[in-house]
Amino acid sequence: MLRFILGLVGLGFVGVLLISFFVTTADYFSNPPEPTAEEEFHHHAKELHLASDGPFGQFDEKQLQRGFQVYKEVCAACHGLSLVAFRDLEALGYNEAEVKAIADQWAIQVPTTNEETGETATRKALPADRFPSPYPNEIAARAANNNAFPPDLSLITKARHGGAAYIYSLLTGYEKQQSAELVRKFPAAKTPQGLYYNPYFPNLNLAMPPPITTNGQVTYAPGNPPPTVDQIAKDVTAFLVWTAEPKLENRHRAGLAVAIFLLIATIIAYLAYRNIWATHKAKVRVTGPLEPQNIAKSQIAKDQEGVAG
């Protein structure tokens, strides 16, 4: 009785699903979904290789310093870095005095309260401060950016599909004009006034103007590679990998130690297991006569030959 009732329940679900399936497929064929500009013109992220890639990857300090310089001179005007503190920059190879100077000379000041009047005020940043945001709040940020909100960059390489490669592709992927084909096929996807065409951006049209436009836009200290657009984009991406995952090097080092430890533990434990089971090893032979298939075969053979048993 229970099986009968449950079988009816099953039939009910299956029936409704099959009706749904036929409606879905009929709808699909009678009314096929229109292709979208994003489907056709969106590009997947370019390949990007950084020193921090792979299980043994470590940061390239010089590159992170260059990337920090790019952030400071190009990105920081609009994008915050609110999860990173100035003191964290010591991981990039700056000493305490340098970090103090960087914080002291930071263009944006830290909000505070006037000790005497109680009014809101600002002061110079200290190493213990996190990077102050360029705008006091989201409304101010939108007002200054044509109603677009520049996201905080602290976690950006972990917060987008495609990760660091996506950020690098976006920075280097702007195109001056949409292809004539796109405009012809999808007139609605034409880049509106105030947006910029970038096939690496999921919606194709992006509010951020191209941030890195010319070779030499940032001047690197002597001894660094020439600041081409590509190099600048790579460097700032490497820096943003660090801001998103400052403990990456610790993680890789610890991971290696843990993996080696567990590998040795596995081997020793396996040998112990073999030793303990040595006299009791009792395996069914894979093709042994007692395997169900073989018993069945011998049964058939016996039946054919008319042997009892």
Partner: peptide, 27 residues
């Protein structure tokens, strides 16, 4: 000791796979 030994080595092997994810591809 039979199944503690078997669970022991197999558990260590699974923890190794777990560690590879956790430390090298945590996200």
């Amino acid at each position: 000791p039979f199944y503690t030994a078997k669970d022991g080595w197999f558990g260590a092997a699974v923890l190794l796979v777990f560690a590879l994810f956790t430390y090298f591809a945590p996200n």
